[in-house]
Nucleic acid binder design. Structure first.
Lengths: 203, 203
DNA sequence: TGAATTATGTATCGATCAACACAGAAAAGG
DNA sequence: CCTTTTCTGTGTTGATCGATACATAATTCA
């Protein structure tokens, strides 16, 4: 491997984590190079040498976010024994994660770049792709429960997945408005109140 | 009134509407003075003379948005004969408004400035206040139904209002992702599926 | 040791940001 | 008419944006 030349004097992963927090708090456009380099403790040439560009840094940061911060939420969805517990756990984990006070509130994937800036469509596209993946994960989990006979055959997994994904997105905005964990759990309660109707629906 | 001096050569209200559309599509930070003056058909000195600053222009634009674009949604909420129809109409009008293809998707109030930029806390604060007002309007409508005996006395208007407001916020992000009217209505169906449980809940 | 390679710090690039100075133009009051 | 008032277009302000040039420092390879 390329171990020649002067070694890097900072921890690349730690710096990436700091960048992730800045993007998380301020969004892609709102995070300036000055914000980033200050938080990362490096100068801009080091940032560009290590990550390439602000765009590439953001893409790496969102990848780290997905792996680290989103892990609990999505493993809960997959591993819960029933579809109902999967959705309830998914939403409960979301409420917990979004209301942590030692980090930015809400979700980087949901809030990072909502306005498609003309020049930087790539960032917007990448976040959309990630949101679409999350929607598909919900749909797959629900349709698995249909296939296993846990849910009725006419259960509309697409509609339900859209509904629960939308609730989660709304919780990001709610969290940004300073909602407490209890307030987020009120939304979870509302969403789960739909379960009985959705799971028992007949065509 | 001050009718002395050279008269304004552009329609102030029409220009404000153009500015609203730019802010709606790009957000507060994403909308540059160049974007605004181009869309409004004026030069920056005229903008500053007529509106004061970018901040003041945004505040006027959100006010116009609330009065014009939000009107249908909130009058439906107030005037529907039952609480259930009020919520259903509120969400249905939202789905219709957010998926119009001849204007930006989603809601200016929800998406206009989610990242609290250090210098411009005023914009963020104003949008938050408007979102809080919307939440209170929902809560008031539901509690009115409780007072009128339409809903059970132990109906939790606060929780339900939080839930439906959050669903609406999520629909803004969903709409920004290109969701069709039908997809938004799937979310409405999910949210209304919660109604039976919420309205019939016993402590 | 010396050549090659890579990272760092300083200093800066052109572009764009929000905002405004200034002079000329268009109206009303006298 | 002339003065006052207000608006418009040109041009520009200092600040900040993302991104680099360049010289130097620190390491490996020969």
């Amino acid at each position: 491997m390329p171990e020649r030349g002067r070694p890097r004097s900072f921890d690349r992963t730690a710096a990436l984590r700091r960048a992730m927090e800045v993007f998380w708090a301020k969004g892609y456009e709102g995070a300036s190079l000055s914000d980033l380099t200050t938080a990362m403790g490096i100068n801009s040439p080091s940032l560009y040498a290590a990550f390439g560009s602000k765009e590439a840094l953001f893409l790496e940061a969102t990848d780290l976010y997905t792996r680290v911060e989103g892990s609990d939420i999505w493993t809960t969805l997959e591993e819960a024994p029933t579809a109902r517990l999967a959705i309830e756990g998914f939403l409960t984990q979301t409420a917990k994660a979004y209301s942590q006070t030692d980090r930015p509130q809400g979700c980087l994937i949901a809030l990072g770049a909502l306005h498609q800036d003309s020049s930087q469509g790539l960032i917007c596209y990448d976040l959309r792709r990630r949101r679409a993946e999350n929607h598909m994960a919900l749909k797959r989990r629900l349709e698995r429960a249909v296939a296993e006979g846990e849910l009725p055959a006419d259960f509309d997994g697409q509609t339900a997945a859209t509904f629960f994904a939308t609730v989660q997105h709304g919780m990001s905005i709610q969290a940004r408005d300073g909602a407490t964990h209890a307030a987020l759990m009120a939304t979870v309660a509302g969403a789960m109140a739909a379960w009985a109707t959705l799971a028992g629906a007949r065509a």
